[in-house]
Amino acid sequence: MVKAEKLSVFVNSVVAFFAQLGESLTDIDTPYLHDNATPIGYDYSGVIRITGPLQGSVYVSAPSAMLRALLTVMGESDSSLEIMKDLLGEIANTISGNARTEFGSDFIISPPQVMDGAPSQAYLPKERRSYIIPLHWRGYHAVIGICVA
């Protein structure tokens, strides 16, 4: 499992993403360990698989209302499901790409896959646990999940 002190790279990545938009997260709660028997997630999740010396996945999950609000802040008038999912994939890609900078070139990331709800057991094996980092922006709640060993 990734050491707790390394979680800051994921937090810093999402803070930087919001800063690019001229926004800031209202709050980032304390990360906690969660079993994967009941994955934490919202309407949609953008998942990146990790391979190399570290194996697992990183995901970001958010409600559709938050994604629509982000698109509005970005000046995007189209808030169709396809555009919302593209945005979520971009956020996930940004987070894992920045993590690759921290963990090195052996940290191999896949293109993001966006799915309805929380990631499945294929991404979050029940025998492992995930770090969950709760995020808050303008009254919306989202999470980053990290299940890497």
Rank of each mutant, 00 (worst) to 15 (best):
K85C: 04
E5W: 13
A65D: 11
K3Y: 14
D43P: 06
T30C: 08
S77E: 14
I95R: 03
G117S: 02
S130P: 03
S77P: 14
P134I: 05
D29T: 11
Y59G: 00
S24I: 10
R100P: 00
A92V: 10
Y59H: 08
S13E: 05
M115Y: 07
A99H: 05
I144C: 05
S13Q: 05
E82W: 08
V114L: 02
L81G: 07
S57N: 14
T94G: 03
V143K: 06
G145E: 03
I108S: 06
G75H: 03
N93D: 04
D106N: 12
I28V: 15
A62I: 09
L87N: 06
L88C: 03
R128P: 01
G145R: 00
C147A: 04
P134C: 05
D35I: 11
R129Q: 15
G117H: 00
P31Y: 01
H141T: 09
A69P: 00
I91P: 03
D35Y: 13
G97H: 07
E90S: 07
C147R: 00
V58Q: 01
A16N: 15
E90F: 11
G22Y: 06
F17M: 09
S8Y: 11
S24Q: 12
E82R: 11
Y42G: 07
L67K: 04
A62C: 12
Q55D: 09
R68L: 11
